[in-house]
Design a protein around this nucleic acid. Sequence first.
DNA 1: CCAGGGCATAGCGTTAATGCTATATGCAGT
DNA 2: ACTGCATATAGCATTAACGCTATGCCCTGG
Lengths: 119, 119
Amino acid sequence: MTERSSWEEIRDRRMGEPGAKEAYHAAELAYQLGRTVRGLREQRGWSQTELAAAAGMTQSAVARFEAGGTVPSLPVLDRLATALDADLIVRVAPRDHVARPTPEPANRKRSVVDVGPAV
Amino acid sequence: MTERSSWEEIRDRRMGEPGAKEAYHAAELAYQLGRTVRGLREQRGWSQTELAAAAGMTQSAVARFEAGGTVPSLPVLDRLATALDADLIVRVAPRDHVARPTPEPANRKRSVVDVGPAV
DNA sequence: CCAGGGCATAGCGTTAATGCTATATGCAGT
DNA sequence: ACTGCATATAGCATTAACGCTATGCCCTGG
């Protein structure tokens, strides 16, 4: 239909489709992660090609990801984060608990991967 | 080989294989996320079957996930988090920046999904 | 005007996560 | 001993993410 097919299209459709609330979240998540990574990349003055090389992937993969074309897998996110010298943080934080003020030392040299019950 | 095949086996193998540092991270991430979710589930006194129903999946899927049998996708994590009334937090936080003390209100009622350049 | 660099897409083959059903234990409770 | 519930696996079909290659477009420098 309309054959406009493009990642934007795909993303828009996913984010608009009702009944797929989870898919929606995931799509939005993908979108925002893409923008975040793009920001970090540009901040470093790197081209998609360079980031791709550093993360062990190709330019097209980076473009697809940055455009939110697909919901990235954790392995890929990890590689990108590592390439950008950043930490990939994935956590399932219960909302019940009154999360403590997160006494994060703001700079601890943890591993690239940071997981936890979040407080 | 040895045909012992089980998720533990799979996980162990993945976490042990050298040369796949990213895969390692991802596997460990999967493992820990699984334990976190299991903890939250038991904390609620739910059975895998119940959590599965609440998250729109089957008991086997939950078992597989909790055992770290596969690296979960974001959509699945989102559904599980939502079912457990928790927040799924995924972020790529640059290590360079001297992250500020995270002035997190410790209790804001954000969306289920929380993404950002992390400060 | 042409060349080069950077980014967006198209297509396609491969791989891995999901979903489901069925089954094997293990552990109470009766 | 039998029944029922919970968890671990097996096996299989589907789907989607990934990886790669090849273009197309745009913009800028020569």
